[in-house]
Design a protein around this nucleic acid. Structure first.
Lengths: 230, 230
DNA sequence: AATTTAAATTGATAAATGTCAATCTAAATT
DNA sequence: AATTTAGATTGACATTTATCAATTTAAATT
């Protein structure tokens, strides 16, 4: 971890849309009340159950947002890429974390004092509204995720995840999957054995190719169909 | 439906906590820009996909919040009882409904013009914050629901639902279940046949009693244990 | 490079689960 | 009250799915 700052809010191009309605004074105040933190893969960025003191601007790397269930079962609700603003549902409520965020690739974030951010929303309704929009998008993600998990069968879930990883998270087609099979298992809410099997099936059917964590989607149409109907 | 008003905001005791920070002027403004609507069981209060023009204060009856999936599969995310404020995740985003709300028992609601409510949040940050707290509670409900559905087996889900209906929704122990088996099926994300079977099992094991839609929980401890471990 | 550790794959099996069809019950309509 | 309709229950079956154990592969450590 580094405690000196390498960025300047006034020139930062990595800020989330939540911050785009601030005037110079407000930007300066954010700058004075933030800390930059780096995380290595596997590091916990936010831990469910702990007190919530900051909101987060995620500006580098890849992280996973996890719901910790019982018996050590975890569910990945989403992956985070820059630029993302994250406060979490405990904000305004009991100021605790309800989700765990873990670095998958090396990450850099700015942590902004929650009270400062809170006060700023009082004076700047545009930021407050941008914050609310951000919350609502999070809700819609959750709803979509829920729908997928409830409706789709195993093959469909894996197909959807591969398309999501390639299209949204890694944004390339032969993509190097930096997440583990366990992560894929937590993302699809499937036992890791099932994930292995299904990936193997996709490979045998010529839908994808796999080698050394590099996945190549060969028949995107087939995957989309499996994702829809499976 | 009745188009004349029977209530007065300034003396209304059925308002959600979201409205508790308003001054006289603001209360009057809400009063001028709301309509009272009654719904019969089965009526659609809000329909997914339609434009969103109002926020809702739910002050009488029982309704279900449904996520419409593919192939006519529906999932009940929650039931609504007074007093509940509901805006929905489309607010601030594309102003469409993403969830469907349907009356289960006769319902009465106030629909408040969305733009008026929006403007009022600009001037009254306390209401805006109460609104945000409401949103975050909704998120936490969703997360809890998701966890249950992902972790628990069929018996556990039915057990949890019975406890929820008795404890939260109907607030009595021998309770008259105004929701249908199909609703119970949509709530637990289980085929209705499975719901029937499991209820019957619970009955045979002396955990509950059932007659004419009246359900009596006899062994709450057993149900709680099944809900936890099942 | 050798050894150890962890992760991923594969196979076999038992259990859970969804679907179809048929029966039964209750409610609604005439 | 008789008829119709919708909803709920039950049974049987095929399929899906989770779990355990064993093997293989890859990564990390010495």
């Amino acid at each position: 971890m580094e405690f000196h700052k390498t960025l300047d809010c006034s020139t930062c191009s990595m800020a989330s849309p939540v911050f785009c309605f601030l005037n110079h004074q407000e930007v300066a105040k954010i700058d004075d009340n933030r800390i930059e933190v780096s995380f290595n893969p596997g590091d916990t960025i936010m831990k469910s159950g702990t007190p919530k003191t900051h909101v987060m601007s995620f500006y580098q790397g890849l992280a996973k947002v996890t719901l910790e269930g019982k018996d050590g079962k975890n569910f990945i609700l989403d992956f985070i890429r820059p630029q993302t603003f994250f406060s979490g549902p405990g904000f305004f409520f009991d100021n605790k974390h309800y989700l765990t965020i873990t670095a998958v690739e090396p990450c850099k974030v700015c942590l902004i004092d929650m009270d400062i951010f809170f006060q700023m929303m009082k004076d700047n309704f545009e930021m407050a509204f941008a914050f609310m929009e951000n919350s609502n998008k999070f809700i819609m993600n959750l709803i979509h995720k829920m729908e997928s998990l409830l409706i789709k069968h195993h093959h469909g879930r894996v197909a959807e995840s591969l398309l999501y990883l390639s299209g949204v998270i890694y944004q390339s087609n032969p993509f190097n999957m930096s997440i583990s099979r366990k992560d894929l298992s937590d993302l699809t809410a499937l036992p890791k054995e099932s994930v292995s099997r299904i990936l193997q099936e996709f490979k045998n059917e010529g839908i994808i190719n796999m080698k050394d964590n590099t996945v190549h989607i060969l028949k995107e149409d087939s995957l989309m169909q499996i994702s829809q109907n499976g």
